[in-house]
Structure formats: structure tokens, C-alpha cells
Simulated assay, not measured.
Amino acid sequence: MKSIYNLLKEEVRKNQAVQNSILGNSHPWKRSHYIILSEIIKEDLSNREELQNERKFELGTSISHITLQRFFESDYHYKTHNDLRFLKTLDKICIFLGFKDLNSYVMNVKENNIYNEAFFSKEFTTDIVYRYCHTNFEFFKYFPTLQLEVFDGLIFPEAPFIERIKNYSSKLCENGLKLFTHNNRSNFEIFDLDIISEESDKMVIKTQEFWNLVFVVEETGEEYIVNELNTQIYFIKNIDEKWMIWDNYNPNSGLLNNVINKKPH
């Protein structure tokens, strides 16, 4: 993720709208320059098809100059740059650069071999886990509609992991659950990530994750809350020159279904 983070900075600097402004001939950028950059991005995002309807309210169409200054002047660190709020900022930056979202940008980087794959393979591989968690949160937002295609490019379609996601999520959707996100009531955070095994065609990654999710049954308003901090294990494979998730061990997988099933009807 660090390389993606740094590459995004360069892409923004080279953006035509940025180059055609006073920013194109200014270095280094100061507070006033980030105010200008914020206005350039705001004007662009307000006209983007990607930020219409619900997605507009979810992401917004602006990035504050303070956030932009921190983005450009701070070094990347996974503990401070992988929370949901920051990932939303990266989504907006990628949309400004002409991509659908952060995932689309990362896939473009890989497909066009912008980086030396051998040198950056470990970073791209660990980044898969960060992108999966972000995508998984977005996946919940579609409930009670099942949108498994959001995992394309992250999980192998024939993998046992995607089948388990389908099984437990189908039951949640059948129960009419919808993720409640107002006032940031639902959120997640990755506290730690370690590579515990690495081979030429597979990697095993361990994470510490916190998930706080509030699901509401649309018809009754009944709430179900997931509030858990646990260790998860990701099994990532390289098949046909593509690194994607093959399986995952989550001790609390299916927990919400068990709670619903035990509840008296």
C-alpha cells in the first residue's frame, strides 16, 4: 500500500488540471496550494458520474485542504492510513484521477506493470488484505441485495472462501438485514498485519481486525450488532500470475447467523 500511496501523490501532481493551475509551477506546496488543490478536486468530483446518488452522500465530493496536506506531507503507515475514513479519501483521489475507485486504480497499476512486480509483489500481496476488508465493508452496504461481484479481482472465483461468503451472506440477506452507517455507527479497523509464511506461489498473512457493524431488519427495525476484535488468517495464492485470496480463517465467521437462528420466533 505504501507504493500505491506514493504513486497516487505523483499522479495527482501530474494531473492536467493541476499542471494547468498555479500548482504546476510551484514546489514545494504550501498551505495555500493545498487550498487550491482542494478546490480543483471539488470542482472535478462534483461533475463525476461515479459520485451520483447514494455514492455522493457516502463519499462526498470534496477533500479538505488539511487532509490533502497531510496526505502529501506524511509518510505512509498502515496503522494510521488504513481506516475507513482514509480509504474513502483515497477513493475520491482515484475518482479524480479517472478511476472508479481505489480498487480499480490498484488493478490498473498491476495490469500495466507500473512497478517492478518482483520487487513490489510482497507489498501488492499484503495490500490485497487491506482492499478486501474495505471491499467487504462496501459489500455489507448492499444488503439485503447480494453483490458478490464486488470481490472480483480480490478472491479467486473458484475459491472456497467466496463460497462461504455466499452461504452466510445469503442467509443474512434473506432475513432482510441492512447495514446501518449513519453517524459512522458501522466501521472497521486493521490493527496489525504480519506475513507468517511466504513462498513463490503462496503467502499466509495474519491480521488483527476490529469490526463494529450494526445491521437493521428493514421491516421491523430490529438491530443486530457485531462488535468483535479477532485474529484472522488469509491464504493468498499466485495462480496464472495473479495474486488473490484463496481462503480465510475467521473464528467468528457466521456468528451473526447463529445469533439470528437462536432468537425465538
Rank of each mutant, 00 (worst) to 15 (best):
E43K: 15
C133H: 10
E10G: 04
V214W: 09
L68G: 04
Y249T: 07
E49Y: 11
Y142G: 01
I165Y: 01
V214I: 13
R131W: 05
D83H: 14
N258G: 10
C94Q: 01
N116P: 07
F180V: 08
L213M: 08
L102F: 05
S62V: 04
Y168L: 02
V204K: 15
E218S: 10
H134Q: 07
C133V: 11
E54L: 05
Y142D: 02
I190D: 00
P251E: 06
N116R: 10
K30A: 12
Y142N: 04
F191K: 06
K242G: 03
H65D: 12
V216F: 06
S121N: 12
H81A: 00
K9S: 08
F96M: 06
Q232N: 14
V129F: 02
V214S: 08
P160Q: 02
P157M: 02
H134C: 01
D240L: 07
N136G: 00
V226A: 03
R13P: 14
M107K: 08
N230D: 11
P160C: 05
I236L: 09
F191G: 08
R48F: 00
E149I: 00
E11W: 02
N184P: 01
N116W: 03
S197N: 03
F191M: 08
Q208P: 06
H81W: 01
E73A: 10
K206A: 15
W29Y: 12
K88N: 03
L97D: 06
D91H: 06
N25V: 15
N248R: 15
F235M: 09
N187A: 13
Y115A: 09
Q208F: 04
